[in-house]
Design a binder for these strands. Structure first.
Lengths: 257, 257
DNA sequence: CGTACGCTTGACAAGCTTCAACATAAGTGG
DNA sequence: CCACTTATGTTGAAGCTTGTCAAGCGTACG
């Protein structure tokens, strides 16, 4: 993959033909409340700039001057740090409805780089240059704080995952998080098209690629998933959920005695 | 350790006799800028409530209604989650100058429990009930955003640590972070009195207590630290720093070939 | 069509956890 | 104040999980 340059200002524009993909509606967007505080009418959101990223394209790089918070509306983005020995460390994946760049608002520069994993649509709010009434600005800031609180709790739960769960549990948790709302809706099985490589997943979960592969195979042999490249099916979501939670499994084992 | 109850409202009061401990000055406090926006005069900060916690005392418990953001000015606090199988997961340690409870401001309830690891002094700002001019409130919110951004980046770098570093590197990093500014000031050695148990450290770093012990011993045998219960000396900070960084070590090995 | 990269699998080694035992320190009640 | 109890810290041995190295396969892209 050739390293693409950061997008130019010119690049950000209204996208009128959003591919064949469906875009997440504003209602499900993590920045929606933020948008509302800036402009009550969902029909006229001139302050929001929409943009489109080709697969592998860089949204911003680490250390680059801050130019706004992004919301993914379609596709997927990874944020990552460049480690000393020119390896990279994936920090997070961002899917439709997620925000990107919140950790940079108070700093004036992005902490990590962000790159599209596939054809991706984003909305941008240049939160550093918002001009509204004081009353609205107050709400706007409150929404920023709410969004950052969510992000913070997300990172904390990720830290807990990395400390307490083994490779298999991490993978189960990860797959279920990708399935997202379907899981909570009580679905038994879900088909996924992963936007990221095995390498990125392994990197994100803190395991070796080989370990990831082996565990994918094991889960497949056990009939919990089907795996064929980036096409992954979660065949038994209840069983995967049981795997994902270390505490409950121990409780179940205790009962079996 | 008997579970203490959460402190009552009455408990929070101005502390006029702060033990034998030295308190961190406001200038070095993570909430200082926040205080400044609320009340320009450092002599009259009536909105800040000071409090004192006995060793092992609970500051707040998980799920408890939010009653403010805290700053540690002396002592130490751990935040932790209660896992299903009545184990606990340490989320973070908080030392003088650090903030506690920022992840709860937008939520109305604390996400994790917070407990004093030793005799501890804190300042509280009930950020949900701040009454100042619009102009000041704006600054106040900006400071909240800045504080949360810092916290967010802290969590992110912790996640990277948990993914990329082995037990030895985690411990080295942890010890150096405890030494804090001394390290950056170029100190060669530092003596530490750890406020937390081995169990808590191991839990925080995501390793078994036994592993932690063994590695403490190894570091001691190698002359990098002295370890006698909670009295720990960092004898060779440059060497510990080298251990802590995985990339540089590999680079050094490559040069040696 | 070839090269590069991503994915997969096997074999082996290293790191870490678990289990068990013991030592030491810290509280607790007589 | 001492004996008792409990928690915490330390150490050894065994076993499992995971990482590393190596190789083969498939696919994407120039």
């Amino acid at each position: 993959m050739s390293k693409s340059n950061a997008v130019s200002e010119q690049w950000l524009r209204e996208v009128t033909t959003p591919l064949g993909q469906s875009r997440v509606p504003c209602r499900q967007c993590g920045l929606n409340d933020l948008c509302d505080t800036l402009e009550p009418s969902p029909d006229d959101r001139s302050f929001v700039q929409r943009g489109r990223l080709g697969s592998g394209q860089l949204l911003f790089s680490a250390g680059e001057p801050f130019h706004g918070v992004y919301a993914v509306t379609s596709g997927a983005i990874k944020t990552y740090a460049a480690l000393d020995n020119d390896q990279e460390q994936v920090v997070d994946f961002h899917f439709p409805g997620d925000t990107v760049g919140l950790d940079a608002v108070d700093r004036g520069a992005y902490t990590y780089a962000a790159r599209a994993l596939s054809e991706t649509l984003v909305c941008r709010i240049d939160v550093a240059n918002v001009h509204v009434t004081d009353e609205r600005f107050r709400e706007f800031q409150s929404e920023m704080i709410r969004a950052m609180g969510e992000q913070l709790r997300h990172e904390q739960s990720l830290s807990i995952l990395l400390r307490k769960q083994n490779a298999e549990q991490r993978i189960a948790t990860f797959l279920l998080s990708l399935a997202g709302p379907s899981v909570w809706a009580g679905a038994q099985s879900v088909d996924l098209k992963l936007p990221m490589s095995r390498k990125d997943i392994a990197n994100y979960l803190g395991v070796a690629v080989e370990t990831l592969c082996r565990l994918f195979k094991r889960l497949q042999d056990e009939g919990l998933i089907s795996s064929q490249g980036r096409q992954v099916g979660l065949l038994n979501i209840p069983a995967l959920s049981a795997l994902a939670r270390p505490a409950e499994r121990k409780a179940a084992e205790a009962c079996a005695l």
